[in-house]
Structures are given as structure tokens and as C-alpha cells.
């Protein structure tokens, strides 16, 4: 197993390198200029040029690339071109907010999704099933930002139950949770739809499996069959999917962070894209890539346990 993890990590290096290179090129090919963005519209061409020089943007591209890789190898993510604060600080600040959101959404998804999925599977082709499936299909058709706007409209504008803006620091847990609820619900409800559908499909597959039939044939009660055998078997592939959902959540959090004006990796990225803050943007992508590699690795390991057919030498 350890050998397998080591091998996967080594294999990830060329992938990461490819990602870094692509990102390095992409952010620079895009039109726009961070120096103009940083100085504002009043600045003279002279001041802009002076800043470009200081930012190191007048260096040849290959040199900038070598510097970027060198810094990266030393674990230095550089400084923001706009605010000149270390990028690592910015990321360290926003990352917990994004992870908190993804985690809460996943929790909501699992808590609501699994029971719904099991229920619709067990009562297959009943009214419960149809309604459950229709609702979950609507759920996964929802663009996250639109659901966010609806929740804001109903629970923050019409009925002022929750704050709609911003966030509170983690040192004030109660406040922090209060701010978290609407954004987490936005992602969590959509997540619920996916997990419910997945669970239904997995449970159905398992219920039609031979050993469940055998269990039934042995005269075991339906409930016992369901809980002792089917559910347990179903839980594992479902939970292993959480890793994959987590990647998606990190992506969809971009929109939710925009709508709810929450700090987060996604909001930082959109801001950096718009301000042409190359160093911040490429560093965020590096962090995304690392998160994805780690989540994939974990998912992969979990799969190894789930599916006995997958074996690594």
C-alpha cells in the first residue's frame, strides 16, 4: 500500500508540472496588465512602466518561468502583484473558509441525501420514489448561484433569518456558523440531490444482487436485510464518492462565495483573474492542483478497499 501511495505521488509530479506550466502561460497570454490594474486609471505611463519593472514583468518570459519554478520548489508562492502581501498568507486565510463551506455542504448532502436515496430505492416506483427523484433532478439542475440568490431573497430579504453577507472569524464560532448556514445550504441542497440519486442507484443494484436475494429467501425481515446487508454495502461506494464531490464543491464554491461575498479560494481566484494578479492566480491554481491530487489519492486508496478487483502490486 505505501509503495502504491509513493508511486502515485511520484506520478503526480509530472502532472503537476504540466499544470503549472499551462497555468503560467495562460495567465500571461490573457490580455490585460497587472501594473495598470494596481495603479488605477490616474497613473501615468511612466509610473506604470516603473511598476512593471519592479514587478519583474519586463523580464523575458522564460526567466519569469524559471524564477516561478525555483520559488515554488522552495515552497515560496511569491507576493501578490497588487497588494504585495505574501500569497501564502492570503491563501492560508481564505482556505479554511472554503474548506468549512465544502465540509458543511458535504455533511448536509450526506445527512439528507442518503436517507432520501434509500427511501426512494426501497419504495421503488411508488409516489415517494417519483417525487423524490423529481425533486432531486430539479436539485441537480439548479445553478448554484441561482439557488443562492433564491435563498437570499427568501431567507434574508423577505424573512430576515440569516445574514446574507460576508463571514465571521473562526474565533467566534456561533457567529461563524450563522454566516455559514445559507451558503452551506446552497451547496448542500444541490449536493443532496446528487447523493440521493447515487444512493438510490447503488441501493437498487445491491438489492438485486444475489446475496440479498438469498438473505430474503432465507426469510429475513426486509428491514434487517436492508440495514444489515444492503445499506452497509451501499455506504462504502457512496462515501468514496465524497472525495469526488469534494473536488466539485471546491469548484462550485467559486459562485457561492461570489454570491454570498464570503472570503474563499474561489473569490480570491476570481479577484486575481480580474486584476491580472499573475502571482496570486498561479499560486491559487497550484493550491487547487495540490488539493485535487490529495483528494484523488485518498479516493483512490478508499477504492482499493471497496472494490476487491482493484489490486496494486
Amino acid at each position: 500500500m505505501l509503495r502504491h501511495i509513493a508511486r502515485r505521488l511520484l506520478l503526480a509530479i509530472p502532472t503537476l508540472l504540466a499544470v503549472f506550466t499551462i497555468i503560467f502561460i495562460i495567465v500571461r497570454v490573457a490580455p490585460g496588465d497587472p501594473a495598470t490594474a494596481a495603479l488605477g486609471d490616474y497613473a501615468s505611463a511612466e509610473a506604470v512602466e516603473a511598476l512593471r519593472e519592479r514587478m519583474g514583468l519586463n523580464e523575458p518570459l522564460w526567466r519569469q518561468y524559471v524564477i516561478f519554478l525555483g520559488d515554488l520548489a522552495r515552497g515560496d508562492l511569491g507576493r501578490s502583484l497588487i497588494t504585495e502581501t505574501p500569497v501564502i498568507d492570503q491563501i492560508a486565510f481564505v482556505l479554511p473558509y472554503t474548506l468549512e463551506l465544502a465540509f458543511a455542504a458535504t455533511l448536509i448532502g450526506l445527512l439528507l441525501g442518503i436517507p432520501t436515496g434509500v427511501l426512494t430505492a426501497v419504495r421503488r416506483n411508488s409516489m415517494t420514489d417519483y417525487v423524490g427523484r423529481a425533486v432531486s433532478l430539479v436539485g441537480l439542475s439548479f445553478p448554484a448561484f441561482y439557488l443562492g440568490i433564491l435563498l437570499i431573497y427568501f431567507f434574508a430579504v423577505r424573512v430576515r433569518l440569516f445574514p446574507s453577507v460576508g463571514s465571521a472569524p473562526f474565533s467566534e464560532p456561533a457567529q461563524n456558523l450563522h454566516y455559514l448556514i445559507l451558503p452551506a445550504l446552497t451547496l448542500g441542497l444541490i449536493e443532496t440531490a446528487y447523493i440521493a440519486r447515487m444512493t438510490r442507484s447503488v441501493v437498487l443494484t445491491i438489492l438485486s444482487d444475489d446475496y440479498i436475494r438469498t438473505a430474503r429467501a432465507k426469510g429475513l425481515q426486509e428491514k434487517v436485510v436492508l440495514v444489515r446487508h444492503a445499506l452497509r454495502a451501499a455506504l462504502i461506494p457512496i462515501v468514496s464518492l465524497v472525495g469526488i464531490f469534494a473536488i466539485s464543491l471546491i469548484g462550485s464554491s467559486v459562485l457561492v462565495e461570489e454570491v454570498f461575498a464570503r472570503p474563499g479560494l474561489g473569490k480570491l481566484m476570481v479577484g486575481a483573474t480580474k486584476q491580472k494578479d499573475y502571482t496570486t492566480l498561479q499560486s491559487i491554481m497550484v493550491v487547487y492542483a495540490l488539493i485535487i491530487v490529495v483528494i484523488n489519492l485518498i479516493t483512490d486508496i478508499v477504492y482499493t478497499y471497496v472494490d476487491p478487483r482493484v489490486r496494486y502490486g
Binding site: 509530472p14 502532472t15 504540466a18 499544470v19 499551462i22 497555468i23 495562460i26 495567465v27 497570454v29 490573457a30 490580455p31 473536488i247 466539485s248 471546491i250 469548484g251 462550485s252 467559486v254 459562485l255 481566484m269 476570481v270 483573474t273 491554481m285 487547487y288 492542483a289 485535487i292 491530487v293 484523488n296
Partner: peptide, 24 residues
């Protein structure tokens, strides 16, 4: 398939955002 995996690794909103930033 390596190229595919690299692209698949990223959520598509993020990929779309970057591609669009370059294309205009």
C-alpha cells in the same frame, strides 16, 4: 489520457474561466 486527466482534475468552472480569460 494524461492530458485528459490533467484537464479533468480541475472543476470545469475553473477550466472554463481560465480558457475564457485567454480567448476573450
Amino acid at each position: 489520457m494524461r492530458l485528459t486527466d490533467v484537464m479533468l482534475a480541475f472543476p470545469d468552472l475553473i477550466t472554463g474561466l481560465l480558457v475564457l480569460a485567454v480567448l476573450g
